[in-house]
Amino acid sequence: MLGKLLKYELKASARTLLPLYAGTLLIALVCGVSMAIRVDNMNEFHQYMANGTAVTYGSFADPIDGGIDTLIGFTMILVFAFCVAVTVLTVMSVVQRFNHGIAGNEGYLMFTLPVKHEVLLGSKLLGALLWSLASILVIFLVGAIIGGLTIFAEREYFDWAYLWYRIWELIRSWNPIPSLLLTGLNGLCSLVCTILTIYLAIMVGQMEQFNKYRVAVAVVVFFAVNWAFGLVEGAFYSLFGIHMMAGMTPEPVQYVNDVYNNYNFILGTDTIMSIIFCVLCFLGTAWMMKKKLNL
């Protein structure tokens, strides 16, 4: 049942988000290609300048180069606007899919399907999580496309061997992989926690007591829950003396190791607390769906 519900959940948002992703990546491609051409021209100009055949870029550039500058500026603005649109529409989609699908008219269908409330909530959560991750990936891809094409244009001047050497050195001496994995897991837990806090806030807002102020109550509850979680986390860290400078020694070599260990420890603790908050929000929302639904 979870798979079936998830399928309809993904379909509902796909019509809005997929064309937006395609548009964003296309604009990023145009921007990246323009940047690459511009970099290529600049490199050519520098060669001419070195040869003494050109003095200023203006005297070197043909009218097409001027056009490219305009195109880069225009596409950069568009890329930024599209990335903002992807972020805003993803958040709106997460909120609307739950608000309409659970607390709105679609709830009459969803709540009369022969599935458990937890499964229903799980499908909403998974759908929201997958679309959020897809949006994050698209924004990363935008950076990768523009950065990658620009670096590609600079390939002759780029010391790839040195770059790989430095990366390898970093991995060998410091091993950042556990930290990176932990950072990823922490980000994922924080994302799930945010989505579940939104759901909990919507469920509190739709209660019969707050019929006239549904949105206002939901917004207040969202910030209040986040504030409460922050307070609990802060109190926990204070109580057990957990902070980045804990147990630091003044020796430089040990200092780096201490920072690294403290970072991992704090991130690990934060991840465990996020998981606890996620479980609380999930159970609280599921309970409200069962006992406090107000369609």
Partner: peptide, 13 residues
């Protein structure tokens, strides 16, 4: 139970 509510409960897409 087969239930028909007094509103549109289907997704418009």
């Amino acid at each position: 139970i087969s239930y028909l509510p007094d509103c549109n409960y289907l997704q418009d897409w």
